[in-house]
Amino acid sequence: MKVVKALNNNMVLVRDENGNESICQGKGIGFQKKNGDCLEEDKIERRFIPENASESRHFQELFMEIPDEYWEIAEDVLEYARKECNIHVSDRIILPLCDHMAGSIERSRQNISLDNPMLWDVKKPLVKKIEISAPLTGKVVRMAQIPDEGFSSGALGEGVAILPEDGNVYAPADGVVTSMMDTKHAIGFTTDDGLELLIHVGIDTVELNGAPFEYKTTEGAHVKKGDLLMTADLKAIEEAGKKIITPIIVTNSEDYVSVKATDSVNVQNGDNLLTVV
């Protein structure tokens, strides 16, 4: 990728070999860079890909106006949320977070205060919180502890897992059964709020060809929270050499700001399991 121009010390506008422009962020990647310089891709920490020329200009203006220290503060906020609060925060919020901080600090410097009507607007929730209930009873297993990299890495989405005490799988919210597998080991579900879930009973259980599983609903069915979706013979799964840990994954995690799992060690089906905003 070739540098088009440096927006600040940590931001550059680049163009790839196909002529597509994007804005790359990384510590010091804009320092002394000029048009035509090559950009070291291993130094890129984040990329912003505008949808059109107008959005590209808007992004460039924002990046040039926001001081470097605000980006560092925003990075610290995201890191704190992830490590200290166990909140899976999307990288996409860093730009609005920086912009919000810059605007707030500038208003403070100019001694501009918000009047009461605006304060009322600020106090109102800006995002909708979606609660997802536990579809099974058992022990909560954190993402990083799921013994399958496809799940633990977050590649399929954010979520949590349950080590179940029994094989009954219930609807975690009101919604529609959107996908059922020939091997019956998993079920896709979309809540009435549009949140997409994958409930995957066990690890590598696709290899069991459906023997320990039985669906109790049909694809396309609208179900209520707590309706029985499927059953699994946990003993048969373990005797076949498979783990019964069951991931519950928000497959459209990127559509949300955060996916936070319950702090509880154990859950009953119907208990709050995930909070998504």
Rank of each mutant, 00 (worst) to 15 (best):
E41Q: 08
N272E: 14
K242S: 07
I112H: 05
P96D: 10
R107G: 03
F48C: 03
G36I: 00
E61Y: 02
K128V: 06
V267G: 03
V3Q: 07
N8T: 11
D91V: 04
A144C: 03
N252C: 04
Q145I: 01
L274N: 06
L195M: 15
T231V: 15
V89N: 00
I237P: 04
D227P: 07
V265T: 14
I87Q: 14
A171I: 10
T217Q: 05
L198Q: 06
E196H: 10
P164E: 04
S153D: 11
G241I: 10
N8M: 04
G26S: 02
D16I: 11
G188T: 11
Q110H: 07
A236L: 12
L136S: 03
E65V: 03
T217P: 06
E41L: 08
G167P: 06
E238I: 05
I146N: 05
R57S: 07
G150Q: 10
R92S: 15
I44F: 02
D166I: 00
E219R: 14
Y70K: 11
I130P: 01
G103T: 14
Q145P: 02
I23Q: 11
N269W: 09
E65P: 00
K225F: 04
S253A: 11
H185N: 15
T251S: 13
E17F: 09
D42N: 14
E75G: 01
E106N: 13
A134V: 06
L136R: 05
